[in-house]
């Protein structure tokens, strides 16, 4: 992908983000933070590439540590979000 296509994706995604986030109900702002936290750990993609690549031992180790850190976030972030969302209940009538 060339720079312009990447930039286009980025700019359009910012707009999508803007409209999607305004539609989030204020009651769910804490789960919003924890789930954005979990998805921003998609940075694990970069960590996996570094960990899998041959050629530099130090780069590989940095990658492995990054994989572990991002995994804490992915599993922890989604799990804690699920735990919170399960608590939101309607009045039982």
């Amino acid at each position: 992908m060339d720079f312009i296509s990447i930039l286009s994706i980025f700019v359009l995604a910012c707009f999508v983000g803007y409209y999607v986030v305004w539609s989030v109900t204020p009651a769910l702002h804490t789960p919003l933070m924890s789930v954005t936290n979990a998805i921003s750990s998609v940075i694990v993609v970069g960590a996996l590439i570094a960990a899998a690549a041959a050629g530099s031992a130090s780069s590989k180790w940095l990658g492995l540590v990054a994989v572990a850190l991002a995994s804490v976030n992915i599993f922890g972030g989604f799990a804690v979000t699920a735990r919170m969302l399960a608590m939101y209940k309607k009045r039982d009538r």
């Binding site: 990447i6 994706i9 980025f10 910012c14 983000g17 993609v45 970069g46």
Partner: peptide
């Protein structure tokens, strides 16, 4: 920014989403 470095659309979309989410909050 890392998504730009790696030319990875999942990272760029997520980054933009999370970035605007935090900014709006």
């Amino acid at each position: 920014a890392m998504g730009f470095t790696l030319h990875n659309s999942a990272m760029i979309i997520t980054g933009a989403l999370v970035g605007s989410s935090g900014a709006i909050l």
